[in-house]
Design a protein around this nucleic acid. Structure first.
Length: 256
DNA sequence: ATGCCATAAGCGTTATGA
């Protein structure tokens, strides 16, 4: 998202255009008291949000119900001197599906403490998914968000550009693969085969017009939900024009 | 050789993004 206040009008227009039942948003960059809730309420959506400061921030908007909102998840690690838990996870029941909106830590550099934090965060997420599926294998849940990992070489435009960089390192890819091993499916991929399909394009260096992006945003669904996926696409239109976010929405149709 | 983009906080410059 990269700031919901700077793009409140665009979000409203996107809801009108997409006709989405549920929208998971990340990187709000605002506190709860600054959140533009009216954009959602005036369109008939309920919305749950969590923002602590100008960093991070996550939300879920739904017009098919929004119940049992949970901030964070069990054993989620924190960051910094005080191990502060950041505003990177929120979940809710939306029309029979447990929807998670997740903003995985960036990692910054391979030798940075933020990278260690990122790996620990992903492992804590995997453990929570494993627990949930062990308790009820038929549960319908989906992890939506910015995972800050490009799982395959096809998920970046040029691997040589990412030599020594985060997002493509083996430990990050192993941590992402563990989510799939836990039983989740990257539901959009069969409908959006690569190479050349991305969800993020850096603002710098004309990355979007040059089609130089990364596929780092996903919907990872449990078996009982994944089997209902009928179609999916990355809404590249939303990356165009004045005031666009650097990410584009990953849209999945679960009407099956 | 370097800056190039964009946001928030806040009014100069830094932190963050990926």
């Amino acid at each position: 998202m990269n700031s919901i206040r700077a793009r409140a009008e665009r979000i409203g227009a996107w809801l009108d255009r997409s006709d989405a039942d549920v929208l998971a948003i990340q990187e709000l960059k605002c506190r709860d008291d600054q959140f533009p809730a009216q954009v959602f309420s005036e369109r008939g959506y309920e919305v749950a949000f969590h923002g602590l400061n100008q960093w991070n921030g996550v939300a879920i908007a739904s017009r098919v119900g929004l119940a049992d909102v949970e901030i964070g998840f069990p054993d989620v690690p924190g960051f910094g001197d005080q191990d502060d838990v950041e505003a990177r996870a929120i979940s809710a029941d939306c029309g029979g599906v447990r929807v998670h909106s997740l903003y995985v830590p960036n990692g910054r550099e391979l030798d940075h403490p933020h990278y260690t934090y990122k790996l620990a965060w992903l492992e804590a997420l995997r453990a929570e998914v494993s627990r949930t599926l062990a308790a009820d294998a038929g549960t319908r849940l989906v992890l939506c968000g910015d995972f800050n990992v490009a799982p395959e070489d096809d998920d970046v435009w040029d691997m040589a550009e990412f030599d020594g960089a985060t997002h493509v390192s083996e430990p990050e890819r192993t941590a992402f693969a563990a989510l799939l091993d836990a039983g989740l499916t990257d539901v959009a991929r069969p409908f959006t085969p690569g190479p050349g399909v991305y969800t993020f394009w850096d603002y710098q260096k004309l990355r979007f017009p040059k089609k130089q992006g990364m596929r780092i945003d996903f919907q990872l669904a449990s078996p009982a939900l994944a089997e209902r996926a009928e179609d999916a696409f990355v809404d590249r239109e939303e990356r165009k024009g004045k005031g666009a976010s650097d990410h584009a929405p990953v849209v999945v149709d679960y009407s099956g």
